[in-house]
Nucleic acid binder design. Structure first.
Length: 256
DNA sequence: ATGGTGGGTTCCCCA
């Protein structure tokens, strides 16, 4: 089973990139973030025509997550249970072929010390509680998405410039490690231990042209899933060319 | 120290 994750920065604006990529690579499961569209306006037909069942949890303008699967999508959970209608639409969990899929769009946090930063740290604490209350580390579980946090300086092209800043600050890394404490492992690091592997480059500073990137999109998987994980690839080429997202897709392969 | 680009909406917010 091959599982993909991609922050598309608007699913409607990215269809011309997303559809050919799906047709070429045909991942079994695709977790999308930042779909930026209300559920009734989601472009279902384009993705269904690629051979996918589609489950969405979106909102107008901001946030939004979706799961596409070539197999049946079961046990769908939209948002943190009990959080209410006003909560950001950033979490979509489900089961595909017996694998628990948790698709997340972690808040960006804007800047260290802001209200959005505190919201981000709290959101990560809620994510850990959600895992504790609804899942077990002995399950075959794959949590993936835009985590908006680097693990360490290997994930940062210019660690001096980024030290202590948003996406790299120690409280964020600690909050992410607390999520990992549920019993998750950084699947990419099973296969690639070096630096220089990035998934996001800032549009505003034309970061991609200088490879000024960060690794903030992750596959965080339970021990049973890690054991069966045979590769994680970053599709860096998708950052080049016309109208890219600021994030590139990743595909993790599991011997399942 | 700031701004840059891009998406979606609305006369600006968010990343």
């Amino acid at each position: 089973m091959r599982i993909a994750t991609w922050n598309v920065n608007s699913v409607r604006a990215r269809l011309d990139r997303l559809v050919p990529w799906l047709q070429e690579h045909r991942p079994d499961v695709v977790c999308l973030q930042e779909t930026k569209v209300a559920d009734e306006l989601f472009p279902y037909e384009f993705l269904e025509d690629c051979g996918y069942n589609v489950t969405v949890y979106g909102q107008k303008t901001y946030n939004g997550v979706a799961v596409l699967a070539r197999h049946g999508i079961e046990a769908v959970v939209k948002g943190f249970p009990g959080a209410g209608e006003l909560d950001h639409r950033r979490l979509l969990a489900c089961v595909v072929e017996g694998v628990v899929i948790v698709n997340v769009y972690v808040p960006n946090g804007q800047a260290v010390g802001t209200d959005k930063y505190r919201f981000k740290l709290d959101w990560l604490a809620r994510l850990r509680r959600f895992l504790d209350e609804h899942h077990a580390a002995s399950d075959t579980l794959v949590l993936c998405g835009d985590c908006n946090v680097t693990f360490d300086d290997r994930d940062v092209h210019d660690p001096v410039k980024w030290r202590g800043r948003i996406l790299c600050s120690e409280p964020e890394r600690e909050a992410l490690r607390h999520v990992m404490g549920f019993g998750l492992h950084d699947a990419l690091r099973k296969h690639h231990t070096g630096g220089g592997l990035y998934t996001w480059w800032d549009l505003r500073t034309r970061g991609f042209e200088r490879n000024d990137g960060l690794r903030i999109d992750h596959f965080l998987v339970s021990a049973p899933a890690l054991e069966r994980c045979t590769d994680v690839e970053i599709h860096t080429a998708m950052r080049a060319g016309r109208a890219p997202s600021d994030h590139v897709p990743l595909i993790a392969t599991f011997d399942l």
